[in-house]
Design a protein around this nucleic acid. Structure first.
Lengths: 304, 304
DNA sequence: CCACGGATGAAACTTACTTTCACGAGGCGT
DNA sequence: ACGCCTCGTGAAAGTAAGTTTCATCCGTGG
């Protein structure tokens, strides 16, 4: 048996617990008692104070310290922290979450929340992964240099369109959004070369939006489509196609994840455009933020 | 004295960091310095001793302790351990430098996309983690049983409010949204017992929204606040407080991740309400989907 | 039987953490 | 403007936690 040398003090990256149980037999009896407690419930051990742990292991604090050294730690605090980290990492079994699918009928709210969040986050991540930076770049170029930008969208996508319009507007780009097809058509008819029209439709089949985009294109504007389906009708009237990756099948999950995915794309474009002229965008944002300042209470600090 | 009331000390199961950044604005300057260090590098903070951390934050140990209490911990050791656990759980961000913060000036579009997606997804996940299902349940109950639901929101949060209204409406709940304060106030004045008012404000300081919510409450309606900051003024006029967990610091990233977080919460409530009466909600959704069918081309069929 | 070495816990000691307190700044009512 | 009060703050005192030292104990081998 070894005389308690520091064993691989620096490297047991895989698992501290494993490491400890590995050299458990080489520890002295009293230290073994400590080790067993630690291995049995790392999280609990991390919560205890050294005195507490010593008592639980029916030994003295000194032995606990010796144990720490034996397993390569500097002292008890370090062990505690490592233990806490370890415990946190292992409690990560992704409990059967409903991927992409429907919410089960009997689900309680906690499950619902977990499922929605999971799918929403997924949609955002996957959308970003499949976004073509080159196409984005072109769209950003077009928008940054545009005389005027029209953003079209109906229903749920309308909110996104409106959000995009508002964002662009805030950084000083001339952008419009129309909740109404007729107005939108009118506007599209007035677009020309150098202008940009953005059509947002999750399904890519919203005739109103397609129609407007078509009009815009006929007038010489650059047209951008944002849809979940790369071969949907809307893509046929668009110079640039950006796609989201929300894989919601049922109508019910319907406009949920897709909105978030769309918004993510909008954010990317927005930041891209803003980055083209940081100084100006920053200034514009400051000015606009200031403008609403008087509608806020408690300026800086907030208290309960 | 009970100067700094523990805010949901027990309930921030997943996101301590998130919890802290939410509370950040409500902390005193010296505590904020500590908080920023902690949020910036939790793992590092966990390694430090209290004196060390105090020095780094250019303050005294006493303030660090106060900070611990402010965020619901018993003392520094507990914070350390929680921090270590948190840091361990945290996945390595795709690009180390762009977490939670700003987009670096020289970034290319691919980086921008990755950064935004990462932060957006994180906001969604962390929001879900810290959402209190019990409170959600109560809100869902209230909405499901409400005679009428008003949803208030201004600026970026207005889109979210509007989205929520539309969703509720689609499943047959009587819901309203008002883009204009005066109309909203008028409506709030007409609310009564059994009605629900939902106020959405990222900062929690939007006076228009607070005012309207206050009015609604005075009339006996149940009031719900959705904000990123659990101690902001809006929470004082709300019976139920739901918080998002977008830790965007700069005004520039501003309304980006927070919208997504808000929408996630909205989705959860929506599905929760819909689940109360699946049959009816399903029917309503089918009917409404059918209604817009004629505005789609290609009969919904998509080649993908 | 004694010498020896390792294991162990009591106690001394050091360091970390927590509480108390007084001071000073900023706000509020008079 | 004045003084009062509250709140944030760090210095310092106090307490608890962690660490070291050391004497004791026990088994082993001479």
């Amino acid at each position: 048996m070894a005389k308690s040398p520091k064993i691989s003090a620096s490297h047991e990256p895989g698992g501290l617990i494993v490491h400890i149980s590995g050299l458990l037999p080489s520890l002295s009896p009293a230290e073994q008692r400590v080790a067993r407690l630690v291995v049995a419930d790392p999280a609990d051990a991390a919560r205890r104070t050294i005195t507490d742990l010593a008592t639980a292991a029916e030994t003295s604090e000194a032995t606990v310290i010796r144990f720490c050294r034996s397993v390569g730690m500097d002292g008890y605090p370090q062990l505690r922290i490592r233990l806490a980290a370890e415990a946190a990492r292992r409690v990560e079994p992704p409990d059967a979450r409903v991927v992409g699918g429907d919410i089960p009928p009997g689900a309680d709210l906690a499950q619902i929340i977990a499922t929605i969040a999971f799918n929403d986050a997924r949609a955002v991540e996957e959308t970003a992964e499949q976004l073509d930076p080159a196409v984005c770049e072109q769209v950003v170029d077009a928008i940054a240099g545009a005389g005027r930008i029209d953003v079209y969208g109906a229903g749920a996508s309308g909110f996104v369109a409106s959000d995009f319009q508002q964002k662009l507007h805030r950084i000083g780009r001339t952008a419009f959004y129309f909740p109404d097809v007729h107005t939108a058509l009118t506007s599209a008819a007035l677009l020309g070369r150098g202008d940009v029209a953005v059509g947002i439709s999750h399904t890519g089949t919203t005739s109103d939006v397609i129609e407007v985009l078509e009009q815009a294109r006929a007038r010489g504007a650059a047209t951008v489509a944002l849809t979940n389906f790369p071969r949907s009708p809307i893509t046929e009237v668009a110079d640039f196609v950006l796609t989201t990756a929300a894989r919601e099948t049922t109508y019910r999950s319907g406009a949920m994840a897709s909105r978030l995915a769309q918004l993510t794309v909008v954010d990317c474009l927005f930041v891209g455009v803003a980055a083209r002229n940081r100084a100006r965008a920053k200034k514009a944002l400051e000015v606009t933020a200031e403008a609403v300042q008087s509608h806020r209470v408690g300026g800086g600090r907030r208290r309960a």
